[in-house]
Design a binder for these strands. Structure first.
Length: 432
RNA sequence: GGAGAGAUGGCUGAGCGGACGAAAGCGCCGGUCUCGAAAACCGGUAUACCUCCGUGGUAUCGUGGGUUCGAAUCCCACUCUCUCCGCCA
């Protein structure tokens, strides 16, 4: 959520910033509503002040043993009615104003490249080179099935399309990846591991901004009115909702592994093969709550932590800076990390690292006290995948496969998997 | 699922419908004292909004409604927490 004070003070700046993200006439009606609301609030406050004063006098009369004048009471009754009207008005204006404010995305930082679609994204750097092989690497949907580690039919049988099941070395490999990533981030990158619910209340979804705007992508349990999280970012953002963190508490750095649930309604028909886009997947998520001055620097650290995962797995990757029009709703600046995948021959997004500045903090009332006695301030939040599991699985299966179909486990994972390779399938492989 | 109790400031915990944004204690911050510290003593210590920026105004005692000139206090509904019983990984 954006600051109404900022919009009031510098509407042109906000308008231009939002237009650079592709929003059309983003501030329409907003300033007018705000003015109306403020007028109604001021008027109500004034009347309440009057009523409070008179009521106090009436109380004193009674305390002194005199009967208060009935006409004063009658007048105050009218004032009370008027106050109730104004309160109703303010409530309605608040709702309308909120509706508009909640629909506005974050303001991009100045250094974010301008552009309305992904063609304006900038490749910042690349690490490693896509391997050249003397055989044709299989895409994971073929390889995974032949190795007996990914079973698409079983997923469909149990849960429908875009669900899958993993067996044996595949299941173990994913578990190893999760453990290894959590250890890396906690032991070497200074994050605190946190285990959070994957099912949350409506308020929590609103706090992180997933509701009301992104209902379509969420699973909902009608009976208890609970929602399945699309990312650990949701519960973590809400951990300190409505709190004021004491001086010296920040920065807080968390890492969590949760299942993530996405209905993918908007992406119907895209990436239907394999496990690139599924309804349920595991993700290791990094999250930071920091002082505003430090958030830009912390974003660099965040991407570096995610990149470190790729490097240690020896997966070629590149870092993309998203342009204004391609960034997520809450983000002011985003880096994506894409890993090369030999089988499907494409760069796969495995991480998205964003500085959300005070956007989530304002909505969730995440504040901190800079020093003892100082006024509370909104903090800044950042989130980044570290990393999303299915796509890492794809990259490992596809990049580390040998001509015979066996898959070499990256060195760092071996202590976690207990095996060095996934042996070649028994059935002969065709390389076409 | 059944029965009961409760929800007040950072915490504990008072609060006959009128001077209550709220006693007291603890904690925290500042000061006095001290070579320094502890103790003791003194003072301060919620958040948000409005503002003609004034020792100014308004709101907030789980949430929402109601009664009243006036509600932390009375009434109604809801939510949540705790205890006991049952069931259960």
């Amino acid at each position: 959520m954006l600051s109404i004070e900022l919009i009031r003070r510098d509407p042109d700046l906000v308008r231009q910033a939002l237009e650079s993200r592709g929003e059309q006439d983003p501030l329409a009606g907003l300033l007018d509503l705000d003015a109306q609301r403020r007028q109604a609030v001021a008027q109500g406050d004034e009347l309440r002040a009057q009523r409070n004063q008179v009521s106090r006098q009436l109380g004193q009369e009674r305390a002194a043993g005199r009967e208060p004048p009935p006409e004063a009471m009658a007048e105050m009754r009218q004032v009370g009615d008027r106050i109730a009207e104004l309160e109703q008005q303010v409530k309605e204006l608040d709702e309308q104003l909120n509706q508009l404010l909640l629909g506005l995305p974050n303001i991009p930082l100045a250094e974010v490249p301008k552009g309305l679609d992904e063609s304006h994204n900038v490749i910042l750097r690349q690490w490693g080179e896509p391997l050249v092989r003397d055989f044709e690497p299989l895409p994971h949907w073929d390889l995974g099935e032949r190795l007996g580690v990914i079973d698409f039919e079983k997923g469909v049988k149990l849960s429908g399309s875009r669900f899958y099941t993993m067996f044996g070395a595949g299941a173990k490999l994913e578990r190893a990846l999760i453990s290894w990533m959590l250890d890396l981030h906690t032991l070497e990158h200074d994050y605190t591991e946190v285990m959070v619910p994957a099912v949350v209340k409506q308020e929590t979804m609103e706090g992180s901004g997933n509701l009301p705007k992104f209902v379509d992508n969420l699973y909902h349990d009608e009976e208890d009115d609970l929602w399945l999280v699309p990312t650990a970012e949701v519960p973590i953002t809400n951990l300190y909702r409505d709190d004021i963190l004491a001086p010296g508490t920040l920065p807080l750095k968390y890492v969590a592994q949760t299942p993530c649930f996405r209905r993918e309604k908007a992406a119907a028909g895209r990436d239907t093969r394999g496990i690139k886009r599924v309804h349920q997947f595991n993700k290791v998520e990094m999250y930071k709550l920091v002082e505003p001055d430090t958030s830009s620097e912390e974003l660099e650290g965040l991407v570096a932590d995610a990149e470190d995962v790729c490097k240690r797995l020896e997966l070629p990757y590149r870092v993309i800076q998203l342009c204004t029009g391609d960034m997520g709703f809450a983000s002011a600046m985003t880096y994506d990390i894409e890993v090369w995948s030999a089988g499907c021959a494409e760069w796969l997004e495995v991480s998205s690292c964003s500085n959300c500045t005070d956007f989530q903090a304002r909505r969730s009332h995440l504040r901190y006290r800079p020093s003892p006695g100082a006024r509370p301030q909104l903090l800044h939040t950042l989130n980044g995948s570290g990393l999303a599991l299915p796509r890492v699985m794809i990259a490992i299966l596809e990049n580390c496969q040998r001509a015979d179909g066996s898959v070499v486990i990256p060195q760092v994972l071996r202590p976690y998997t207990g095996f060095d390779e996934i042996p070649a399938p028994k059935t002969a492989l065709s390389t076409k």
